[in-house]
């Protein structure tokens, strides 16, 4: 956390932007109880717990929030959301924040590249092909990552052998066009819900 001695200012502009996301306005009703923090399975590897992240939003600390790995390490396990006494749908807020971070060019986490690859795969094919996601991911992450990927080839080979991963891309689903329509509709609703 910031340690310089200048008092921080409360910058409400950033908070307002976040409150305008689909589930963003729920953050307002967070009472900082910390139930989410103690419930979160990946809290240990997060820069800030959900509670702290929400408080940073309130304070207007845009860079800290956007560069935080918190939302990227959220596994969507739903424990926090189930337990939050104020009914904050925390995982949905996390999704909104991820999307906002990507849209605003803050997405240099490996997880962000993975999300993008995964999404492109689903949107393009209607189903997930692990090989495709991997390929897209490494393209996004650059050559350095390919070396790491080679170090993991044994894992990949074993998965192939046990039929946990097909070698060739599966066929696209039937009615991909309809799926795209569904997605489009959902995005429209999302925009509408966001205030």
């Amino acid at each position: 956390m910031e340690q310089n001695n200048k008092p921080v200012k409360y910058d409400l502009n950033f908070a307002r932007e976040i409150y305008n996301l689909e589930n963003g306005s729920y953050i307002k009703q967070c009472m900082q109880c910390g139930m989410c923090a103690i419930s979160c399975a990946t809290r240990e590897i997060m820069d800030y717990s959900p509670r702290r992240l929400f408080n940073l939003i309130k304070l207007g600390k845009k860079d800290e929030v956007m560069q935080a790995n918190t939302m990227w390490n959220c596994t969507s396990c739903c424990t926090c959301k189930a337990r939050c006494p104020r009914g904050v749908p925390i995982i949905d807020v996390m999704h909104d924040l991820k999307k906002y971070a990507i849209q605003n060019g803050y997405a240099d986490y490996p997880q962000a590249a993975f999300y993008k690859a995964f999404w492109a795969e689903v949107a393009g094919r209607g189903k997930v092909f692990e090989g495709g996601v991997t390929a897209r991911y490494y393209l996004l992450r650059g050559l350095d990552e390919v070396k790491k990927a080679m170090a993991m080839k044994d894992v990949g080979l074993k998965m192939l052998k046990h039929k946990r991963m097909p070698l060739f891309p599966p066929k696209k689903i039937k009615g991909l066009g309809n799926l795209k329509k569904i997605i489009k509709k959902a995005q429209e609703i999302e925009r509408r819900e966001a205030r």
Binding site: M1, N5, P7, V8, K9, N55, L56, L59
Partner: peptide, 15 residues
């Protein structure tokens, strides 16, 4: 208003 913001652990100022 200058305050000690306890949740943030910092001094804060609002004007």
């Amino acid at each position: 208003i200058t305050a000690d913001d306890h949740t943030m652990g910092t001094q804060s100022e609002a004007d």
